[in-house]
Structure formats: C-alpha cells, structure tokens
C-alpha cells in the first residue's frame, strides 16, 4: 500500500535548494577539524569565501552589532547576483541592492525606500516573502541537518503563497501544519566580541541566529572586535557560542560594527545612523556608498580618514553599560 504525505497547500516561490546530504558532504570535505589559524584580512576573506551567485546571510545588521565592515567590503569588491537572507535588517539590504550586488531576496524585514522599490519594479531584484522568525527557523533547520521544519506561524498569509513553504497534514496529529524549507546559506558573516585565531567565538548580548547561521552555512566568516588567546577560551568554555570547526575565516576588525552599536563596547554613531537611514528612506545611497565604501581603501582607512580617533573614543565613552558584556 502506498502511503503519501498529504500536501494541503504550497507556496509558488523559488527557494534555495534543500540538500542535507550535499551539505554534509560539503562539511566533510571543507570544514577543518584541526585547529588551524584562520586569521586574514577582510579583503582576503571576502575574495576567498564570497562568490558571485552565493546565498548570503549576515547576523544582526548594519546598525546593530552586525558585520558592517564585511558588508562594505562585499560592496567594494562588487560581488554580483547574491541571494540575500534579508531578515531583521535595516539599511544593509538597501545598500547591497543599491550597489548592484543582489538579485534575489528572502524577506523577513528590511528598511524600505526608493532603492529596493525601484529594483523590484524594474525586475533587477526578485523578492520571496517570509518573516524574520520563519527565516531564523529555516536557518535552524539548516543547522540541524534536516530538510524542513514544521512551524506554527506563517500559514494564511499572502507571503506563504510567494515562499517555499507548504501546509501538510501532520502525520502525527492529523492537523494542518506549515513546513518551511531548511536553509543552508553559502556564506554567513557574523560579527562577534571575541574570537581566537581558530574561530572559537564569543557573543555577548542578544542576537538573531548567530549560532544557527554559523552551523548552517557552507562558508563562515567571523569578524571580531578582539582576538583572544585560546587559553582564554579554554578557561571559560561555556562562553564559546560558535565552535571553531564551522568557521572558515577570522578577521580582526575593531569597530567592525560601525556605524552600529557593539553592545558593551561602543555606542552607535547617531549622526551617521540618521544619515544612512535617511538616505535609505528618501534616496541618496549612491552618495553614501561613494563616500563610505568606494572612496576608501578598507575599513581602517575609513576609520582613519572619515571617523577619526576622537570620534571613536566618544563612541566608546558613550557605551556606559558593561554588565553582561565582560567575560
């Protein structure tokens, strides 16, 4: 007797191919089990590990403990045809679209404005609809090595129709149940407080899906405020959020979340935030990119020439809350 799982409804959106065995093989063949130093520059990390056409996720975002410096480096290297996991993101999605790096976006949330609106209307960017939590649930499934995850949200929305989700009859309860496809991104960018040269990483404070993205992604680039000795990691192993063996590159980028806040270390640059949010909502991102990305050599050149030591020290001084952010 043939028994089939009953599919009650399904979205028509294209989704990043689901292939748990393929991902396992990638992990077997590419993730280094030995403790190998992975320290490199942002330029080298992005050149080596971000290819045109990759599915990209970044944790947090350009304004909130995100890998802002790595995102700028992707734009500077003019990567193309990226498929963006646009969850919990303010201006980064718009910056990457403005720069022509993106051709597809799975949307949870981004800060809207003329750039993305125009790109979508002109057919340069195709959007698939999800929600923030559904996106992190998908990454969770990818991190678990399973093909899909049942979730209790998302059903009944119009987004469902333009996604890769399905409603099945749950074979255990008999109830209609939404399932979403696992997401194994090609590359994840994660900015952390501390890491050792092998990629053992500590994150202090809240977050979106740092650990899940690190485990789910084929290539993982960690940027860190501070490099700590592995002896320090071994001294308090409970603080290790991301284990070294899923990490491919470690980039030492102090103020790597600038202009965003790095909780416990420095505050956001309010003036800069207001400018880039304004440019996203009203237009003018090309001017922003020219100044802050194309017009500088790298992150350190930007800090040196456009921000300055005085300003950076002010941001450090404004981060008065330390509780919970010190090991």
């Amino acid at each position: 007797m043939v028994k089939e799982l009953e599919i009650l409804a399904e979205g028509e959106g294209e989704y990043h191919p689901v292939d748990p065995d393929g991902f396992r093989q990638w992990v077997r063949d590419h993730k280094k089990r030995a403790l190998v130093p992975k320290l490199m520059s942002a330029k080298e990390a992005i050149e080596r590990f971000v290819q045109d056409g990759d599915y990209l996720v970044y944790e947090c975002n350009y304004l909130q403990r995100g890998p802002a410096a790595l995102i700028r480096e992707i734009i500077r290297q003019r990567k193309r045809n990226l498929w963006l996991g646009a969850k919990f993101t303010w201006v980064a999605a718009a910056l990457l679209v403005e720069a022509g790096c993106v051709s597809k976006m799975d949307v949870g949330f981004f800060l809207f404005g003329p750039t993305v609106d125009r790109a979508v209307k002109e057919g340069r960017v195709k959007i698939y609809e999800y929600s923030n939590v559904v996106m992190t649930n998908r990454i969770k499934a990818g991190a678990m090595g399973i093909p899909f995850l049942p979730v209790r949200s998302f059903g009944g929305t119009d987004g469902f129709n333009y996604s890769g989700a399905k409603i099945i009859r749950d074979p255990y309860t008999g109830q209609p149940t939404v399932i979403v496809p696992a997401l194994n991104p090609d590359v994840a960018l994660i900015h952390v407080h501390q890491a050792d040269v092998y990629g053992n990483a500590r994150v202090f404070g809240t977050g979106i899906s740092d650990v899940e993205s690190a485990l789910a992604s084929k290539k993982v680039i960690i940027s860190t405020e501070e490099i700590v000795d592995t002896e320090e990691i071994r001294h308090n192993p409970g603080l290790t959020a991301i284990p070294y063996y899923c990490v491919d590159a470690v980039v030492h980028l102090p103020f790597g979340a600038y202009p965003g806040e790095m909780a416990g270390r420095y505050a956001s640059d309010v003036e800069h935030v207001v400018q880039v949010v304004g440019a996203t909502m009203r237009g003018g991102l090309e001017v922003y990119l020219e100044k802050w990305v194309y017009g500088v050599e790298d992150h350190f050149d930007m800090l040196d020439r456009l921000v300055g030591w005085k300003r950076l020290q002010q941001l450090v001084q404004r981060a008065t809350i330390k509780e919970g952010y010190l090991p």
């Binding site: 939590v133 979106i208 949010v277």
Partner: peptide, 20 residues
C-alpha cells in the same frame, strides 16, 4: 533605531536569548 541588540534596550533583562 537602537531598540534591539543594544545595551540600553537589553539592560537588566532576566535573559538574553535570540530570535529563535
């Protein structure tokens, strides 16, 4: 904008978790 993942918004919480 610093309403989430920020030290002031997260101050004196009972737990710091994640979106998941």
């Amino acid at each position: 904008i610093m309403t989430m993942v920020s030290s002031r918004a997260s101050y004196r919480a009972l737990q710091w978790g994640t979106m998941n």
